[in-house]
Design a protein around this nucleic acid. Structure first.
Length: 560
DNA sequence: ACAAGGTTGTTCAA
DNA sequence: TTGAACAACCTTGT
């Protein structure tokens, strides 16, 4: 069968390990590689900022050049999938559509629409799994229809399935000689990759993460030169505030499919085979891509995975609505340099270390601000080059102790956590230049610096840099109590339901609160309805908190 | 009913 | 620096 095929790139912006494109080439006499820049579709599911758009456009340019080197090209077309495809199918005499199989809801919806259209236009459809190591449906099937909800269990299921498929064969010039890409009568111009400004975006920050398969492969090779580092990689030991990424920095490329996860995985297997004591999941590099797979699997089988309401695995929490506090967090104006530096790096560069993400996520949700993880997830979606439907939501639920992770008493301290690995605050000085002359002693909690030190450093706290928006010790303890209370309530609700089933008359009697719990409730009752920012500062044993409540205009963020 | 296990805390002593 | 103690929990497996 010799088709005239449109290969639709969505993610999977690469030529290496591209099983769908290989199969399409082998079954066709003419191949049109197309990227359909359908903004309604792309922006319908996530809110992408300029950094992310820049990364995508660069990746498209790169893909276009790689295809050109093989005698082909990339057609980039703006418009809705349906309208554009109807036109092109007629114009180019298309008989087949090919695109990668995907699992996320918006892609599944698109998949459905494309198949409907294909059926109407009598087109063949060709689709392979290329974005994940496994077909996640297989994983769920192997776990008797349920997604495994812990990583260990997930690994156990995988061990039954065996190793993931090896990468697809390389695509060469010969493929495009046998199956050439015809030109279009309208020439090159209408099909070029648009510029960022044509899309209405502007970025003032330099490119630290150039998009595209070539850069992905270069980065991959660079890391594999240090085989020992690759083999012994242990995630928790990497440093969140190093000035250059202490991890591989491959996530943006994996996210957009500029790098194939299978290629990465099997390259790692080779290194491990030659190494005596390589690290293992969950902390190893392979462990990292398996985490990715884990979240893809759970997300694919969980309704409303990116939301709290209607999400069966997500703890239902009455988070505060506090747009001003959220805005301070997003803009790096919390008054905690460690938090603000991370958020600044995020907005400027589009990437921060995983543990840094933990720190700011914990701070926003269960740690300090008690703001919904969905809000934070959306901010990450806007800026993070590697933001991904399943991973982003999964990690936010994790960090907010809404799902997967439950030991909510482990709250990151926004002062000590960063100081451990960067006591002199080089990272803070880089991203918050206003603090660059502060002595190391005070830089993680600059509000504790005596006035003359602030003067000498050229930075007055409360004027040049904000006072901390919350008292961390108080806020975290209050939130912890809220979390405890919440869980007790849910337990009682469960009891109640059970009792009702047993004997409706006994309901009131069997509900119980342990005595210490009652004490907790009393102690926290006053706070439970008060936004974090409004709580006055009263903790007596607070060593690092500013003693002067008059100097806290930043505190009252809600009721003014 | 109860123990074990869960990617990645904090503190303090050597 | 590293390691042990402490650890305001929840789910799963026996």
């Amino acid at each position: 069968m010799s088709h005239r095929t449109i290969h639709l790139f969505n993610r999977g912006l690469r030529l290496h390990d591209n099983p769908t494109l290989v199969a399409a080439l082998e079954s066709s006499a003419a191949m049109y590689p197309v990227f359909l820049l359908d903004r309604a579709f792309m922006e319908g599911s996530v809110r992408m900022g300029a950094l992310r758009w820049r990364f995508i456009l660069q990746s498209l340019e790169d893909l276009h050049h790689s295809l050109q080197r093989l005698g082909s090209r990339l057609y980039v077309i703006q418009g809705s999938h349906e309208a554009v495809l109807r036109r092109l199918v007629a114009q180019w005499g298309i008989t087949q559509l090919s695109f990668d199989d995907e699992v996320e809801p918006h892609y599944k919806q698109l998949d459905k629409e494309l198949r409907t259209l294909a059926s109407e236009l009598s087109l063949s459809v060709l689709s392979c799994v290329a974005h994940s190591l496994y077909d996640v449906k297989r994983i769920i099937k192997a776990n008797s229809g349920q997604p495994p909800l812990t990583y260990k269990k997930f690994l156990r299921v995988l061990s039954v399935l065996g190793e993931p498929d090896t990468p697809a064969r390389e695509i060469t010039e010969t493929d495009f000689q046998k199956c050439p890409t015809p030109g279009d009568e309208e020439g090159e111009e209408p099909y070029k990759v648009p510029s960022l400004s044509e899309l209405g975006f502007e970025v003032e920050y330099e490119v630290l993460w150039p998009g595209g398969e070539s850069h992905a492969l270069k980065r991959l090779e660079k890391h594999f030169q240090s085989q020992g580092w690759v083999a012994n990689f242990s995630k928790p030991r990497t440093i969140p505030n190093s000035l250059l990424p202490s991890t591989t920095g491959l996530s943006p490329y994996l996210s957009l499919g500029c790098l194939s996860v299978r290629t990465f995985y099997h390259r790692l297997s080779k290194v491990y085979a030659q190494s005596k004591n390589h690290s293992l999941p969950p902390v190893s590099l392979q462990g990292q891509v398996l985490w990715r797979e884990f979240f893809y699997t759970v997300a694919s089988a969980t309704p409303n995975f990116t939301r709290m309401v209607g999400n069966p695995i997500c703890l239902q929490i009455d988070w505060y609505e506090d747009p001003q506090a959220l805005h301070k967090w997003k803009m790096g104006q919390t008054g905690f340099p460690w938090i603000d530096a991370i958020m600044t790096q995020l907005r400027q560069e589009g990437w921060v270390h995983h543990l840094a993400r933990h720190a700011v996520a914990c701070f926003l949700t269960r740690g300090d601000l008690w703001i919904s993880w969905e809000k934070g997830m959306k901010v990450f979606e806007e800026y993070l080059l590697d933001a991904d439907y399943s991973l982003n939501a999964g990690n936010w639920m994790w960090l907010s102790a809404s799902a997967f992770f439950h030991r909510y008493t482990r709250i990151f301290c926004p002062i000590r956590f960063g100081r451990r690995t960067d006591p002199d605050g080089h990272y803070l000085r880089k991203y918050l230049p206003v603090l660059k002359n502060f002595p190391s002693k005070y830089i993680y909690e600059p509000w504790t610096a005596p006035e003359h030190v602030q003067h000498q450093s050229g930075c007055i706290i409360g004027k040049d840099y904000p006072l901390p928006m919350v008292n961390h010790l108080e806020a975290s303890q209050r939130n912890l109590a809220l979390m405890k209370e919440l869980r007790i309530e849910q337990e009682n609700t469960a009891d109640l339901t059970r009792d009702m089933a047993d004997d409706p008359m006994e309901v009131g009697v069997k509900r119980k609160l342990p005595e210490d719990t009652i004490a907790q409730r009393d102690a926290t009752e006053y706070n439970s309805s008060v936004p974090v920012g409004n709580k006055r500062c009263s903790s007596p044993d607070e060593s690092s908190w500013t003693p002067d409540p008059v100097r806290l205009p930043e505190m009252s963020s809600k009721v003014v």
